[in-house]
Design a protein around this nucleic acid. Structure first.
Lengths: 346, 346
DNA sequence: GTTAGCACTCTCATTAACCGAGTGCTAAAT
DNA sequence: ATTTAGCACTCGGTTAATGAGAGTGCTAAC
């Protein structure tokens, strides 16, 4: 329903505003190469665009600023194509340059590079360990009372857990228990461990081990807690927001940092973004107080068909959507490829 | 060489300025209970104090502000006694309430509580693992090429390390190697591991194992890297600085955050503060550009006589020295006590 | 349908005036 | 010999006035 000319104007307004952070006036627009008509014409079109809700004035005689609806339309239909420069590609490549075998490190480095590249804040939601499969479980006694339980998954992830050992348990029982656990539970996804303990392991334990009750508690202690914990979040460029002119007000910085720092809220927000592909949430679409001036762009990365985690870029609503989306696409797919390739070995 | 009255005035000026963040004038001072002489007298005394360098004016006809020298004198000689409230003590106690057996968690929680209590930024330098002693080393093969090496120390600390296994190494050799390592190296401090490998283990290995060269590389890979890594730093209340009026300027926030975020610089700074007891570095005493308006108060915590790490509180020079020092003293000694008690079991 | 022209609006930067908090100095009081 | 009252003076911060500049909406001409 918008005419081509209106679309052109909308696009140029948003492009210019993203660059300059200043309201865009009709005269500025009329000087652009792409635009061949006079400022008066532009003024008329702008009045229409404003009436339709795509742009706004900051005050009665100011230039125009994109509205949330405007950004939404821009993101959905008007994104200018971006080609990543060689430098950009090289940096992205550098994430995978070193031979890294640890998922966490690679994910952390991705967050780092991504924030360098975009100058915004990035968050990478690490893969939940729930679906990883048990490779081995070890219990290393530290002294009479405590021991550290170590769980290794098929992906090389290591969980540790310091536990107390009730004095009723005999060391040899402990050893037996570990053997039984390893015999019966290798290959089981961590999330199913608790169930399997009761269906598969409990009977065997009862048959072989004296202090059955306390040993069960010990097992629970070593396996239970880590499952409900949220997946790790890796941040990059937390302070990049300070450079954006929209955050020259210390109050805004504070309220935004509050959201980021108390990670729970932010984690919940990211959990919503589990769908395949790039997702863009603009301003109030995030439904979080204090993020009205922010946009969140997310992508997922995966191994084969299985989603592993989410990569997110947080910036002002006046964000370089095109560029960020391109970069994010690239990083997510490269990361998926590398991980897929890597996991195939197992 | 300062008269009692001058000291009194200096103290009241600093106390007031710490509270209000506003330059203190003679009239304000004369209204204080402690002060029984007129504003004119105070003006004379202040002129002297200024000449001696303990206080400064922000402009020719303003009230006085403590100088760095003033703060230094205040910290060294004029600290008003502070008694921690029951609430404060209860919060500090709560660090140790839960039965926590993991050093990292307890240290992290200390940082958290400390920043809550002081409203400043806190850093806790975790203990370096270098001095911990090897409890066991395990190598868990993940697939043909990679394995994860797991080092457990007597303190329950777990290091993991993904390594590649050269195809020339036979799995049984790997097993032999692990056995030999465990036989020979248990109880050795991590920092001495590399040396011991050559003095104690190399010969045995050569005698028993075929692919001697590649296995040595593998060992190095599993043990080498983690030693030079700096000890972990745990932050609390990174954003608390935003609430201080001296950081209403976004530029200052940025330069300070830069220092904090790129942890290396900050780590180096903390390393200087290894001496026993409370240390206070005021403003430029920190010798870090961008920290001219900050003070750093540090304490060490230890097990028995052995220093483990450093606890630090970073605030504006206009910091509540008295309160922070009291709290820090308490936390450091409580932490030391708990850890000493805990470690004695080993 | 497009554009030139014009009156009007509003922000922002500059300047001037003023208030208030604070100082230093002098002279009187203790 | 101190201490204090008094007074002239300084300077930052706030308010108000002014003007320039950017931008708009509307009308009338092209």
């Amino acid at each position: 329903m918008l005419t081509d000319r209106q679309l052109l104007i909308l696009q140029v307004i948003i492009d210019d505003f993203i660059r300059s952070a200043q309201p865009v006036g009709s005269r500025t627009l009329s000087k652009k190469d792409k635009i061949a008509f006079s400022s008066a014409t532009i003024r008329n079109e702008m009045a229409d665009l404003e009436e339709l809700g795509y742009i706004e004035k900051t005050h009665i005689s100011s230039g125009r600023v994109p509205s949330q609806k405007g950004y939404r339309y821009y993101v959905d239909h008007l994104l200018p194509p971006v080609r990543l420069t060689k430098e950009d590609l090289a940096k992205i490549q550098s994430i995978f340059n070193e031979q890294i075998y640890e998922l966490e490190k690679i994910v952390q480095k991705s967050a780092q590079i991504l924030s360098d590249l975009t100058n915004y804040t990035t968050v990478v939601l690490g893969p939940s360990v729930k679906d990883h499969k048990l490779k081995t479980i070890q219990i290393v006694p530290l002294n009479k009372e405590t021991a550290v339980a170590i769980i290794v998954t098929d992906t090389g992830h290591v969980e540790k857990h310091v536990i107390t050992i009730p004095p009723t348990i005999h060391p040899s029982d402990l050893e037996k228990m570990v053997n039984i656990l390893n015999e019966r539970l290798i290959g089981v996804p961590l999330i199913d461990l608790n169930e399997k303990i009761y269906t598969e392991v409990a009977d065997v334990l009862r048959a072989h081990i004296q202090s059955y009750d306390s040993i069960l508690k010990t097992i629970s202690a070593s396996l239970d807690l880590d499952l409900n914990a949220p997946a790790q979040m890796f941040f990059g460029g937390k302070m990049n927001m300070l450079r954006q002119p929209e955050f020259s007000d210390i109050e805004k910085v504070r309220s935004l940092m509050n959201i980021i720092e108390q990670e729970k809220e932010f984690y919940r927000l990211l959990r919503k973004h589990q769908q395949q592909g790039i997702q863009v949430k603009i301003g109030k679409e995030n439904e979080v107080k204090g993020m009205e001036d922010c946009s969140l762009i997310t992508a997922t990365y995966s191994v084969g068909d299985e989603k592993l985690g989410t990569i997110a870029v947080l910036g002002p609503t006046r964000m370089e959507y095109s560029r960020v989306i391109s970069i994010l696409n690239r990083v997510a797919s490269d990361l998926s490829n590398v991980l897929t390739q890597w996991y195939q070995k197992y």
